[in-house]
Amino acid sequence: MVKEKNIFLKLLFGEWNTKTVVVIAIGSALFGVLLDFAGIPVYTNTKLSVAYLIPIYVGALFGPIPAGLVGLFGNFFADLIGGAGFWPDWWIGNFVATFVIGLLPLYGANIKEGLFTKTHAIIFSIVSVLGLLISFAFIAPILNTLFYGGEQAINFAQGYIAVVSDGIVTIVVGVPLLFYLAKRFQKHSNLTVD
């Protein structure tokens, strides 16, 4: 039982060594840069943000807590380099969203060993959309109303737009990316130990 708990914690936190620290740092930097500079404008104020591929990568290889920290610090960095004010409501929203997106190892997808099936893809899509819904259509708008006294209807509308656009990116691009990564790592795992 103790061992099972340890494995669970390890899956949740990832191995917390120097490499994890560096991955979170670099991942957050990438997330921040992509959030600020690489959006694809759809309408005036809405854009498809490709930044959400980073937590997928980090989550698949290092676990959900590192992925969540990537979202949290990534958004913090985006605010620091962009300069349009600090929005802690969105930092927390992004933490929850990227944490849930990074839950991959917990339901058995093991990208490092090249294990990613269609079932995993379906679970991943459902879980990610649920995570985005909880964070951007629930947590972030409520925190925004609480912190900044915004109008709830507008905040929720903004949240729903974020859920739809980020959900599209996560599923339409994220799933092929995961299959690609699994295949890439599978090549290395064909070797056997003598």
């Binding site: 670099i26 930097a29 960095f77």
Partner: peptide, 13 residues
Amino acid sequence: TVVALGLRAIPDI
């Protein structure tokens, strides 16, 4: 370290 290293990586990225 995450904060310092990440912010320093941004110009390169």
